[in-house]
Design a protein around this nucleic acid. Structure first.
Length: 419
RNA sequence: GCGGGUGUAGCUCAGGCGGUUAGAGCGCCAGGUUGUGGCCCUGGAGGCCGUGGGUUCGAGUCCCAUCAUUCGCCCCA
């Protein structure tokens, strides 16, 4: 064991990849249903794309990006989040000219230089969607609903959808000031992190997990009461649509998200089945981002959801996935002549669309049968000298133990008929 | 970037105060009729005891470092 995968990364082994495929397939299915098409962007982008969009003073930009210089002296960065590349592609290819609203999804790796712990890695994978071009609160509801339906389709239970509005450039500054004034008398009692937040990003004090900080801020002004008319109306409509679509939620006025570009709707889906990192899906509206990145003012909303965390919940809840990787037929041969015939039959079966396997390690018949059993083949097709002389093969049903002799000449059709 | 736990077989883990050839279960391989799987029985392979230093007559066991992993903080999915 000389080499191992880099810290915070993991292999998805053959025994686990069906789970990943299951999740990805469910997600694609839901996206198709809701009219979202896949958009694939490069694994790395110009560094500036992320520093401008995510915000210079966020944790991601200040200490978590995988940034490198290529041989042409360009500064590039491995994608640390999914939204900025989508917006870049949207602008670069002028997708706004094709349809009033661009609805896209992605399934991709995300890279952040973090200290690994439960549910947190240096490379993780997200499924996500972005709807760019509409300010209609109904599309916020659509995005959220799609996310909940997706997680629900996996059989996950016990999820809580938390939703809030973080305001907009019109009302947020005033709220920020009101918040700071209210907290001012107690600044000295706040935890060290919150003292920094008080100056740098006051809203983040609201979701501090330190009990004393929560007590100090319990009677602080509520952001929902300080929204401008537009933001308040937007939030109200989003909640209305969610009610209408039967999507349960919890209004959480302390929910704040880390990226600078969020406006109005912010939401997060948390699960009690996870550890400290309990958010499995998170997103919101980012009406200022397209403009910030050089486009026309364009409203947008989206979410990202971690595949590893989703898998962790499914495992914690004992959710099984349908297994489809079993071969239909395991070809068992005895002797050199039979091996010839077996390889030929194996090829014919596969050409006819029948999943078929054979042993390549020269095992005894008993061991070949064991392999057939272990791989859960429906039939073991046995070929030996006796059968060859009679021009037949034996098809053994592994469950009923019933053995049927079939002519070698039309074996493929006969076996197909038995499956 | 900061704090705590843990590194022994493919996997899950035992290995009282340092003491000879490091164990178990599961898994794997092979036998139990020279042509038949699951259950059972028997046998076998497989370990630089994470790595590097140190203490000691002697280290899987004690000390230091390092790497990995794990649980937290920060932040996020």
């Amino acid at each position: 064991m000389r080499y191992s995968a880099p810290r915070g990364t993991a292999d998805v082994l053959p025994q686990d990849s069906p789970r990943w495929q299951y999740i990805e397939n469910k997600f694609r299915e839901i996206c198709r249903l809701y009219g979202y098409d896949e958009l694939r962007t490069p694994t790395f982008e110009d560094t500036e794309l992320f520093t401008r969009s995510i915000g210079q003073h966020t944790d991601i930009v200040s200490k978590e990006m995988y940034t490198f210089t290529d041989r042409g002296e360009r500064s590039l960065t491995l994608r640390p989040e999914g939204t900025a590349p989508v917006v870049r592609a949207y602008l670069q290819h002028k997708l706004f000219a094709e349809m009033p609203v661009s609805k896209v999804y992605y399934i991709t790796g995300i890279f952040r230089y973090e200290r690994p712990q439960a549910g947190r890695f240096r490379e993780h994978h997200q499924v996500g969607i972005e709807a760019i071009g509409s300010q209609d609160p109904a599309i916020d509801a659509e995005v959220i609903t799609l996310g909940m339906k997706y997680l629900g389709s996996l059989g996950i239970e016990g999820l809580t959808l938390k939703i809030n509005s973080v305001g907009c450039p019109v009302c947020r500054p005033a709220y920020r000031d009101a918040l700071k004034s209210a907290v001012e008398p107690y600044v000295g009692e706040l935890c060290e992190s919150c003292k920094i937040r008080y100056e740098a990003n006051p809203l983040r004090m609201l979701d501090c997990k330190v009990a004393h900080c929560r007590e100090l801020t319990v009677n602080v002004p509520n952001i929902v009461d300080h929204l401008c008319d537009e933001c308040a109306g937007h939030l109200k409509s989003v909640l209305h649509y969610l009610d209408m679509l039967n999507v349960p939620y919890t209004l959480d006025s302390r929910l704040v998200r880390g990226f600078d570009y969020y406006t109005k709707t912010a939401f997060e889906v948390v699960s009690g089945a996870l550890g400290a990192q309990n958010a499995v899906l998170g997103g919101g509206r980012y009406d200022g981002l397209v403009l910030e990145m050089g486009g026309q003012p364009t409203p947008a909303v989206g979410f990202g959801s971690g595949i590893e965390r989703t898998l962790a919940i499914m495992e914690a809840q004992g959710i099984e996935i349908p297994v489809t990787t079993h071969p239909s037929v395991f070809v068992v041969t005895l002797g050199d002549r039979a091996k010839e015939a077996g390889i030929k039959l194996l090829g014919d079966l596969r050409n006819a669309g029948v999943a078929a396997e054979i042993d390549y390690s020269g095992k005894s018949m008993k061991a070949q049968m064991r392999s057939a059993d272990r791989e859960r083949a429906q039939f073991a097709v046995i070929i030996g000298d006796d059968e060859l002389d009679k021009g037949i093969v034996k098809a053994r049903n592994m469950q009923t133990k019933e053995e049927t002799e079939v002519d070698l000449a039309d074996a493929v059709e006969r076996i197909k008929g038995m499956l």
